[in-house]
Design a protein around this nucleic acid. Structure first.
Lengths: 98, 98
DNA sequence: TGTTTTAGCTTTGTATTGCAAAGTGCTTTT
DNA sequence: AAAAGCACTTTGCAATACAAAGCTAAAACA
């Protein structure tokens, strides 16, 4: 009945939506690449990554390339489940409009 | 490249998304029915309807049923175009994740 | 060796948004 | 006459978004 009842509040942000969809197709992506793909400021991206991590949807890996720091982000199983649920809700809503 | 570049800012709100998807399948719907379908407070709904109207996505018709007021809402051509564009962007994003 | 740049943040400040609750005016129902 | 419903508007607060600035450590450059 309610076409929006199953949408996930966390994924109402365009940036968080973008992060998740990028990480669904790329096993892990570093901070800078995400920043460039989404065309956002670094502070803004960092805070969205933070809320995704706080919700258990993302895991962070602080590593190195050679001796240069390289922080990568990847989706957790919980994140994948939540995101797929959200996409299903969106698809349902879209079908509802036909 | 950017999976979220074509999303419409106006439709990032779950309630506005809900209003639009309801009005895509129902030619016109009155205030109270929208309120019940979306399970929101009247003030909250009114303000979202207002922003949709301000953006030219909705037209409002203040009429009567008998002698009782009945305000109905319907999508404008611009609203339909914008919403379809947003759905296309969402579908594109969803496909991107496969 | 000193200076600048880059990566990845955190902090700060502002502006916008979301929302509930209360108030309003008109009408209908009881 | 009183209560309730409809369709709002207003108020006020809390959460959010975002840019900009600051910050640390390492790297690249001169």
């Amino acid at each position: 009945m309610n076409p929006i009842g199953n949408l996930n509040k966390i994924f109402e942000s365009r940036i968080r939506l973008g992060v998740m969809s990028i990480l669904m197709v790329n096993e892990e992506v570093n901070f800078n690449d995400l920043k460039q793909m989404l065309e956002v400021t670094d502070g803004n991206l960092a805070s969205h990554l933070n809320t995704l991590e706080e919700n258990g949807y993302l895991k962070v890996h602080k590593g190195f390339i050679g001796r240069k720091t390289n922080t990568t982000y990847a989706i957790t199983p919980a994140g994948e489940k939540a995101f797929k649920g959200h996409l299903a809700a969106l698809e349902h809503m879209i079908k509802f409009t036909r």
